[in-house]
């Protein structure tokens, strides 16, 4: 009896070891690639952020925390005293706000679209997916110009509305936050639709059928069955829209008019004409820390809930 039990334990342990080994083997290529070519650059960035700016760009090997101090405090140009400054926080706030709104917008448009594709016959689905991504085979800049032409004062939308007699004067969309919002959704929509589709596609419609048998309304089915099933896709899609949206700079400049800085512009500027690489590095790391913490909390919660299913 005891012997049998111990072989069972041994077998289970052996299986666990095998599983662990397989797991790390599977992870190895991605972890190695990113470990070397992603984390090493990150380390360089971390080091840069604690150095002093070099003449005309680059860094000099002199320890300094100025880059971080500068983020929150400003040295008064007159007497050199440090005072709290919200300039950078405002820029971060604006970018985060816009990225967030764009994520919600993309979800509102993307979810029905992904569902629509997932409910098509299997042989058509890939074609639909392809159609969603096809516009993105053209260049971002050219695409953004095309959006610009549509939302201009003399653009298709305004001309159409005026001709239809709905408005007398064009609605100013271009060079406002609305334009940036539209542009961001446009740029990142497939990043929302595709993960959503990937998780919706496996939805078991027998559950839906059962729910209807139990006299559930369509909304209840949506809320209790479809949305929970799509949850991993919602998480993935939101991450893929929100984070790149934070760093976007071409869309905000072209459609928003470029009068206000976004995080992306701010950081790029430090590596360009401002010639302050340490500050650029620090600003990037601060952004990354914020995003990372938010993401880890998000994923931990999601996987804890996910554990209940399994």
């Amino acid at each position: 009896m005891a012997e049998a039990q111990s072989t069972l334990v041994d077998a289970r342990r052996a299986a666990e070891v095998r599983e662990r080994r397989a797991r790390w083997l599977l992870l190895a290529p991605a972890l190695l690639t990113i470990g070397i070519f992603g984390l090493f650059p990150l380390t360089i960035t971390l080091i840069y952020s604690f150095l002093s700016p070099g003449t005309y760009g680059g860094v000099t090997w002199e320890f300094s925390t100025d880059a971080y101090v500068q983020f929150l405090f400003e040295r008064d140009i007159f007497d050199g005293t440090l005072e709290f400054s919200s300039t950078y926080l405002q820029i971060y706030g604006r970018s985060i706000g816009l990225a967030f709104v764009a994520t919600v917008g993309a979800l509102i448009i993307g979810f029905p679209t992904a569902y629509f594709i997932a409910s098509k016959p299997p042989e058509q689905r890939n074609v639909w997916l392809f159609l969603i991504t096809l516009p993105f085979w053209t260049n971002l800049l050219i695409r953004t110009y095309a959006v610009l032409l549509i939302i201009r004062d003399e653009g298709i939308i305004n001309l159409g509305l005026i001709n239809a007699g709905l408005i007398d004067r064009p609605i100013s969309i271009l060079y406002t936050d609305t334009a940036v919002f539209i542009g961001l959704i446009y740029s990142y929509l497939p990043f929302m639709v595709l993960p959503l589709y990937a998780s919706l596609e496996k939805l078991d419609f027998r559950l839906v059928e059962a729910a209807y048998d139990l006299y559930a309304t369509r909304f209840q089915v949506l809320r209790r069955i479809i949305v929970p099933a799509a949850k991993p896709g919602i998480v993935a899609g939101s991450i893929l829209v929100f984070i790149p949206g934070l760093g976007a700079y071409i869309t905000p400049t072209l459609l928003g008019g470029g009068k206000e800085l976004m995080i992306g512009n701010l950081i790029a500027l430090q590596f360009g004409s401002s010639r302050n690489w340490p500050f650029g590095s620090a600003a990037a790391l601060i952004l990354m820390a914020v995003v990372m913490v938010a993401l880890l909390i998000y994923v931990r919660n999601a996987s804890r809930e996910g554990g209940n299913h399994g």
Binding site: A30, L31, I34, G35, F37, G38, L39, F40, P41, L42, I44, T45, Y48, I239, L240, I243, P244, G247, I263, G264, I267, A268, F271, W277, G280, S281, A284, L287, M288, V291, M292, L295, L296
Partner: peptide, 18 residues
């Protein structure tokens, strides 16, 4: 976190360091 790390870092920083 490591797999998603390239997503987190603003491009210009990755570019310079890479």
């Amino acid at each position: 976190a490591i797999v998603n790390q390239p997503l987190m870092v603003p491009e210009i920083v990755t570019a310079v360091a890479t």
